[in-house]
Design a protein around this nucleic acid. Structure first.
Lengths: 346, 346
DNA sequence: ATTAGCACTCGATAAAGGAGAGTGCTAACA
DNA sequence: TGTTAGCACTCTCCTTTATCGAGTGCTAAT
């Protein structure tokens, strides 16, 4: 049996109706609401075929049909009409991004907020991976005898700091001198560069204070400073409470608990596509236990063509794919642009 | 009618049973499970009295009794037996606090985690209010032409930073000089001090760079830097899903939404007692709409005798008050101690 | 004052009886 | 040969009815 044009239109109608109503769809509804010019009986025959093909299923005899994962997949790949964002929606995103967003963390959080507010699902945004960024400034600041603060400012405008225990005989002037030397050597280089080529050079020049230099390099090396931003920014977690599929508390508990495990979320975001475009993972395609009746739509944002992070929307399998795909795409592009110009400015 | 000894014992039994089972308590249960040496009929008579006194109520005829807010209040004030934490519990807290807790934010978050894990309710901890703390170090760091980073380190070990737009003609040496002067003047003084007495002095000495000084003072003055820690650290928000009173989604939604409003949480924590000891707010005593069938137990932690923040546990009115009160008290004392020594060390 | 006994109330649970939505099949039709 | 009207059938959902049982309040006896 083959998919013909009419089967496609009927499948499309079933999926659209089910997404909108969350109720199994019957042949009469299809024939009436979506003007196909055929009788319910014909639709019934076609539906029997579609079921045999695996695209739809019956919760029980004498109920309508609901789409299967395979049906949704076919819909997303072949049937879905591109949803055009309204001018209002677009304005909403711009307004959000135009608000005070000096810090990169705020930009990312805003992105997550926009995603969840526009889709009414849960959004996840992975903060930028900046391990390759160049260092703009390093500064050692004395705090107490035996204590100094290391401050690292990257090209991308991230500021991180860390308290360091240092030998007690180091003076203010020493710290300033070390800072000067470090800056002269490190500015404009990424941590990778430093590790591979610059270390010996600096060792030579800083021979007097190798101990401190080791500490600083250690700090830069394990990159814990730069990984600070690399968390998952969640938003709209409570939106699932509005979905009829989450009427029962157990499901809510399971899902909300999952959302507390950041590593899991990172894994889920990891299958975002490397290139432009949007990736859709439907229901059971997801191997993580507990979200197999959820779908996830992801994309990757870039700065200057480099992958830096990904964004995603999580909702029930019965998700408004057309809308979410376009929202994710739109916001992803906006974020990429914004970050690129954000980093240029710095 | 008066409360006599037997009425008290019966009320105590009712409340303990209801807290444990979440089911209305009948006269037979009381007479059987709690050896009072009287028949159910006698208990019934007493229960009728207790109801008239307002301590208990009937959901409907032919159900058992449940405690009223007034009943819980009487229980907390007069009947409750002091719960002694087990050695295990105490060890659990110590172990939590002994883990790596360099940063103050981590200590506060750990406190919240401990509270929620030990009580199985939701915990709230208000971060320390540090507006009175003295400044230990101020540093200006050049970042770009026209951009500098201000770093403020306080006596309490908090490090905050903020990017500043500065006149383009300021040199590295200028910044270093300004830093030196600021440090000489500001070190050891609180922001309040500075505002009132030191400003003119510094103005005189820094006359060349008043513009920058204004910016820095502005930053210190609005205290946004120091208020960073002053947020509410939540934990165990999902614990309410285990409570039978939150079977229905609407209630869950209402409560979880409330927990997203930080200002509201701050207000709720605001009626923590100023002195040592623990404050209990029961059900309708709470005026915030939406948590009138919840109770809240709060305490205030101190550093060197000064109030710096408060901790709280939120749960259903049918809460294990005895346990929670002792947990809150214990953790509160531990936190105060820990912070005091933490700040001494710095 | 306490208690056994008893009638009564009322929620919860189960059983029974439609109502309605939807199906699959058959036979007629273009 | 594809389409459609008709119809019997299935199964969920809702309502009604019946029953059960926990728990009460009252009364009378101890």
């Amino acid at each position: 049996m083959q998919m013909d044009e009419r089967k496609k239109r009927i499948l499309l109608a079933i999926i659209q109706d089910y997404i909108a109503t969350a109720e199994p769809v019957g042949s009469r509804t299809i024939a009436r609401k979506y003007e196909l010019g055929v009788s319910p009986a014909t639709v019934r025959n076609e539906m029997a075929d579609l079921e045999e093909l695996g695209y739809i299923e019956q919760p029980h005899t004498s109920a309508g049909r609901i789409p299967s994962d395979i049906g949704y997949r076919y819909y997303v790949d072949c049937l879905m009409e591109k949803h055009q964002l309204t001018a209002d929606d677009q304005a909403f995103v711009r307004a959000g991004y135009e608000a005070k967003n000096q810090e990169i963390g705020q930009v990312i959080q805003m992105t997550s907020n926009l995603l969840s507010q526009m889709t009414n699902y849960t959004s996840l945004v992975l903060g930028p991976q900046l391990t390759g960024t160049a260092i703009k400034h390093v500064q050692l600041v004395p705090v107490d005898t035996g204590k100094a603060l290391v401050i690292v400012i990257t090209q991308s405008g991230i500021v991180q700091n860390k308290m360091l225990n240092i030998p007690e005989n180091i003076t203010y002037e020493d710290l300033m001198q070390i800072s000067r030397i470090l800056n002269a050597k490190l500015q404009g280089h990424s941590v990778e560069d430093i590790k591979h080529t610059l270390i010996s050079e600096i060792y030579f020049e800083l021979s007097k204070h190798n101990e401190i230099f080791d500490m600083v390099m250690d700090l830069l090396g394990n990159q814990s400073l730069l990984k600070e931003e690399e968390r998952v920014y969640l938003s709209g977690t409570l939106n699932i409470l509005n979905q009829p599929e989450f009427r029962n508390i157990e499901k809510v508990k399971t899902l909300l608990s999952l959302l507390d495990h950041e590593q899991l979320l990172k894994n889920m975001l990891a299958d975002a596509p490397r290139d432009d475009g949007v990736f859709v993972k439907i229901g059971g395609e997801n191997k993580v236990a507990g979200i197999q009746d959820c779908s996830m739509i992801t994309a990757t944002y870039h700065v200057d063509g480099k992958i830096v992070g990904s964004i995603g929307v999580l909702g029930p399998t019965r998700m408004d794919y057309a809308k979410v795909v376009s929202v994710v795409d739109f916001i992803n592009n906006n974020l990429s642009e914004l970050l690129t110009s954000h980093f240029k400015r710095k």
